[in-house]
């Protein structure tokens, strides 16, 4: 008996319907969903870190206008529900942007569901990262920076070679927490029809009518994904440990 047959039998005899194993259509959907979740997570992580760094840099700068704008951005995104932000972007903002014209002469948006999900997730996680990096930068003693500058470093050089590496290491554990949250938040993309893991699972269970089985498979997949991420990051944190400090 092949594995496929075994799982078909499991369904017929015991009503445990793991259609993702024996049904190629469901399996493909599930795998695609998983890959989409990975894609959303990785791209949004990278962008949110860039946003966080730029924001923290602006907050430490001299321009009052830029500082104010950054603070406004951080507060607006930190204090409103990410789901509504996503819907706001996808349904309310998107129609105002110029679109491209496709072969059928239809105006299609330049940014699709996946694009908006990435933008929205990056902005939300990025706003939180600004705060994380800012407090990391504040934790670097000003004497350290002054020492670097007295050694002839310019402000940018001192930032790049001395202050930032220290601040980044200090921020790392808070950053990791936020990134785990980001992975979990990718589930919101479900609401705008992005075929990620939750969407794929929901599509499977509402058509193959196997809610319990799919729910558990999906939950286990998310837990493994997050366990994998924290496993990697624990190694990174250990490798970057700074002797003589708490971090």
């Amino acid at each position: 008996m092949t594995i496929v047959e075994a799982f078909k039998h499991l369904n017929d005899a015991y009503g445990i319907n793991l259609s993702i194993v024996y049904d190629p259509f469901d399996r493909e959907r599930f795998v695609h969903g998983f890959l989409m979740t990975l894609l959303l997570s990785i791209v949004s992580m990278a962008l949110s870190i860039v946003i966080g760094l730029v924001g923290a840099w602006l907050l430490g700068g001299r321009s009052r206008l830029l500082k104010g704008a950054t603070t406004g951005f951080v507060e607006a995104f930190r204090n409103t529900p990410p789901l509504i932000q996503l819907l706001f972007f996808f349904f309310a903002v998107s129609p105002f942007l110029p679109g491209a014209v496709n072969s059928a002469g239809q105006v299609t948006p330049l940014i699709g569901g996946v694009g908006w999900a990435i933008i929205s997730l990056s902005l939300y996680a990025g706003a939180l990262n600004v705060e994380i990096f800012r407090s990391g930068l504040e934790a670097v003693p000003s004497a350290t920076r002054e020492a670097a500058e007295s050694l002839g470093y310019t402000r940018l050089q001192a930032f790049r070679h001395v202050v930032f590496p220290l601040a980044f290491r200090i921020s790392l554990s808070a950053l990791n927490n936020n990134m785990v949250n980001l992975i979990k938040t990718t589930t919101l993309a479900y609401a705008i029809g992005v075929p990620e893991l939750l969407y794929a699972s929901a599509a499977i269970w509402s058509e193959s009518l196997n809610v319990r089985e799919m729910m558990l498979v999906m939950l286990a997949t998310y837990l493994l994904l997050i366990a994998g991420y924290t496993g990697i990051m624990n190694r990174v944190e250990r490798a970057l440990r700074m002797p003589g400090t708490d971090v």
Binding site: V180, I183, K184, T185, T186, T187, L188, Y190, L198, A202, V211, R212, M215, M218, L219, Y222, L223, I226, A227, T230
Partner: peptide, 18 residues
């Protein structure tokens, strides 16, 4: 660990349907 790491939306689906 389990309750912290599962996505909130997934837990909501879980309680809602099961």
């Amino acid at each position: 660990q389990f309750t912290r790491n599962a996505p909130w939306l997934v837990l909501l689906f879980l309680t809602m349907f099961l």
